[in-house]
Structures are given as C-alpha cells and as structure tokens.
Write a protein that binds this DNA or RNA. Sequence first.
RNA 1: GUGAGCGUAGCUCAGCUGGUAGAGCAUCGGUCUGUGGCACCGAGGGUCGCGGGUUCAAACCCCGUCGCUCACCCCA
Length: 431
Amino acid sequence: MKFQAIKGVRDILPPESALWNRVEQTAREVFGTFGFAEIRLPIFEQTDLFARSVGQETDIVSKEMYSFEDRDETSISLRPEATASVVRAYIQHGMQTLPGNVKLHYMGPMFRRERPQKGRYRQFYQIGAEVLGASDAPGIDAEVIEMLMTLFERLKLKGAVLNINSIGDKNCRPAYVEKLRAELVKVREQLGEDSKRRIETNPLRVLDSKLEQEQGIIEKLPRIAEHLCENCREHYAEVKRQLGLRGIVYQENWRLVRGLDYYMRTTFEITAPGLGSQNAVCGGGRYDGLVELLGGPATTKGIGFAIGTDRLVLSLQEAGEDAAQDGPAGKAAGPDVYLAWFGAAAQSAAIGLAKRLRDAGFVVELPAVEMKFGKSLGLADRLGSRHAVIVGDDELAAGIVTVKRLSDGAQQKVGEQELFSYLRTAQNPGI
RNA sequence: GUGAGCGUAGCUCAGCUGGUAGAGCAUCGGUCUGUGGCACCGAGGGUCGCGGGUUCAAACCCCGUCGCUCACCCCA
C-alpha cells in the first residue's frame, strides 16, 4: 500500500458517517432551542492566540500544537481547541454591543500532536458552545449544563455521568495552590515521578492522578472547596441550586481540575462508558478573565464546553445506538428504488422516471449501462434496495412499469401515479 | 516523549520441528437473453510491512526499522 492516512488521523466512512451526521444535526437542533447560533471559525490562527489563552506552559501549547511559519514569517497554528477562536471573533466583531448574552456554538476538527489511542486522535472533532456577556450569573452555568444533558438524552447516550467542581478564581486559587504545594512537598517521597514533577509545574494536576499508591495520600490533601473565597463559594452554591431546579443529577468531584489555564470557578466534565482509558466525552467551565486577556472588554464573562465528538460517537456505537443503519455490511442504507431498464428506449424512459422519483424524495439507483435481467435484479438485491422498478419492452408498450418488492418478491404492473402512491405507502414513515 | 502487543489477499485468518503461500467471506465473470437471495464453476487480487543477517533454502530463526493498536503522560 503506497499511501495511507497520516498517524492519528482517519477517514470516517459510511455507514458511520450517518451517525456523525445525526449527532451533529441533533446538536444544532438542541442548541438552537436554547438560543445558540452557529459560528464557523477558521481552522488556523496566529500561534500567539493559543499561547495566550490556553497557556504557554500547558502540554497543549508547549508540545502538541501543529505550528508552522507562514510565508510572511508569522507563526501560525492549527487550532488545538476553539474557545480561543470564539473569543477572538467576539472581540474582533465587537459582539459586546449585541443585546444580552452572546450564545454561539461550533463544530469541527481540532488538532493536537499526541500519541493516538482509543478515543484520541491527532485530528479530532469537537462540538462546543460558549456564552459570552456581562453576566456571570450561576443560572447561565446551569443552563449550559442543562443544554448538554439535553443533547445526550436526545442522543440516548447511556451511562453519562456529570462531574462538577469549582476551582476558585484569581482571588482564592493562588493561595490554595500554594497550600497544596506545601502539603505535597511534605509527602514528596511517597509520590510517583509524574506527581513529583507536578508539585512544581501544576500541583492541581496531582489531584487527578490515577496511580493506586497515591490515592490514600491524595484523599488527605486540602480541598479547594474549603478554601474558596466568599464570592466563589456563593457562586458555586448557586450553580448547584440551579442545577437542582433543573432536575440535573450531578456528582461533586473535588479532584476535577481542568488542563487549560483559562478556566476558573465552575468546571465540569461528563464521562461515558465504552471509551477505554479516555472516558471524558465533554469538558467545560467558566473563563471570566479570558476576554480581557485577549484584549476585549474586562467586563465580559464567559463559560463554555467542548464535546469530543469522536468519543461521543464511540460511546454510542459501543451501546449499539448505530444500529439504525440497515444496509448491507459496510454500505449505507440501500435505495428506495432500483430502476432496472432494458433497451435504449427504456433507458430514456427510465432517466425521466428517475428524475421524477428523486424530485419526490425517493432514493433511486439507476444503472448506467444495460445489464442482463438476472444480473440487474441481483445487484438491486445486493445494494439493499427496497423495490425494483422494471422498465422493459412490455412495460413501454403498455405505458406502465412493473414494481417488485424485494423483501418478499411481490410485484405488480402499475401506472406512474400508482407507482408513486405505492412507494409512499410502502415507505417506512417516521423512525 | 515512554512502555507493551501485533503486522500473511479488500476483510477475518491458516500456514506443523525452516523446503520461496492457502481457506472462508467479499469483488468480477459464467451456468442464467424478463425476474434477486440459493447452488455450482471460474477469474482477478499477495515485493508474507520494509531492510539486513544466519542457511543449500526464511512467512517461519536473529538484528534493525517502519506501521497499527492499547496503555502511560495529557486531554475532548
């Protein structure tokens, strides 16, 4: 094999692509009902945008970005996430002058140069949404989460678990981080290599460690919930109350920390089964300082999330939710009508009929060259067609067609108007 | 970046203690010039991931390398 896809990227083939479309379409519908409109963003930006927002010292920026020098020598990067772009667009287009909160959603590929594994790719897809505006009301946090849960419910995602936490703001987090660091130094020798390193680089990350021998130590570490400032504590309490008002079940997880620098206060993550080691389908949180950091008005607050579409689809597949495809293995669902024609005169009649059928919304397969009768019906069968419509000399002479139901072989001769009504009643409406 | 497992036809795999490749499925054609699923017959398709070494002889043994997968790290 000469060419193959680059490491960590992949093709999404039928019938899986149909599930992707369903997921993305459902997201558009659900988000639309919450008043979110779609924003289409560029796939690359100035490198500095990501360095400033995501954080220069994060793994994403320091070692995972696809960066390159443009011809004018500016550094450009493929986006590793989209919140920075949304905020950039918000500022660039002066959206702070729009009435109320600006609610935007997006979907598309992101790029991070990590070692691929189950549920992780170098080109991966996210569906995300952001609320930007003057208000940081806890009700916004809760509604954003409600919207997410509504989507998952609509998609029949099984076993989704919502984890929430508050990681404080610039008034209380630094002091907590120092306290945590001080405690970690005391138990340094009992920690693994990775956690030892994080004492310096990112003490919060230690809380997220999965190492068995560290669990007992982590349980005894100071918790941020007990070190939040007054404002953060009240905000967090109100977010939880607002979630309760919406009937949303959540799990408080004091060890939930986010990897991107811009998060503060509310953070959340949703896990789902069937994903292997990477079990988070969605992560998000509040980022009130980000707009100002990127040069926008200091009064603008923000909150958002990103769903890992690859992982969401994977979890749905593991649960058998992709069974809606009923075509032959490896193929998309078959056509409604296979239009078998025989002879030059029949071909021209079939071309016209195919057009009228398609205009009426039927999926029509029209053989490009004449085939033997048996071959043609055989192909109709293997394509998973529901009906064969036969146009040969006999039909032409009588001005009718033969329609045959492939599932049981029942067939009859009908005029064109009858054909349409027959096909409509034979359709499986709904689903 | 680190570790482990795996690389034989489009797919799933067989190939014994070394003797230069097979099956099933799939594809295409035929039996079959107005009726599909079945059956039978046939065809195409492989530098055995790649390179080197050992050997009279390597898919098989040794070394290296590339790729895939999973896990660590980190994250969606």
